[in-house]
Amino acid sequence: MSAQNKDVLVAEAVRLREQGHPEQARERLLALTAEFPDALDVAYQTAWVHDVLGLEAEAVPYYERALQSDGLDDEDRRGALLGLGSTYRVLGRFGQAVETLRRGVAEFPDDGALRTFLSMALFNTGEHHEAMQILLRLVATTSDSPHVRRYRPAIEHYAADLHRTM
């Protein structure tokens, strides 16, 4: 099978997943994985469909394979880092979740979803102070609420040092 045909079949599997047919998508992606074991996009999509189906443990090796080199485009790499970090967290592998999500935030510092998931993983490792700082900064910089915007300087000030009261 050609790479062009592979891309068409991957796109069909993604459509199936998005249209609420993840088991059919999984079957197609597993077949593609067998035929293209080194294709990072196939590994990523296979991981994603396993996550959708609640098969987190089965998703991990596909995410890891997808991230083994820099072959994914930025959007897929961002999704794979978030997916793997989140999956590690769901599986109780909190240290690996933090490590993966920190890598994601380092590569994509403007991604609020990565920072949010990192804060959750930090909470799970007992790093409550850093988790809260990340969330406060995220709220201060991304909220559309006029009330939050009014207090943005104060929120950012206290995010720098949560122990400060004045």
Rank of each mutant, 00 (worst) to 15 (best):
Y62F: 15
E64K: 13
E64F: 08
A66W: 08
Q68P: 00
S69T: 14
L72W: 10
L72H: 06
E75L: 15
E75G: 12
E75Q: 15
D76V: 11
R77M: 12
R77H: 11
R78M: 08
G79H: 12
A80K: 00
A80F: 04
L81W: 10
L82F: 05
G85R: 07
S86K: 01
S86M: 05
T87H: 01
R89M: 06
V90H: 00
G92S: 04
G92Q: 04
R93Y: 03
G95N: 09
Q96W: 06
A97C: 03
E99N: 08
T100L: 01
L101E: 02
R103H: 12
G104V: 10
V105L: 01
A106Y: 06
A106I: 07
E107T: 09
F108K: 04
G112C: 04
L114M: 08
R115V: 07
R115S: 11
T116V: 03
F117R: 09
L118V: 12
L118K: 03
S119V: 10
M120Y: 10
F123Y: 11
F123E: 12
F123R: 07
F123Q: 10
F123C: 00
T125S: 07
H129G: 06
M132W: 07
L136N: 05
L138N: 13
V139P: 00
A140C: 07
A140V: 00
T142S: 15
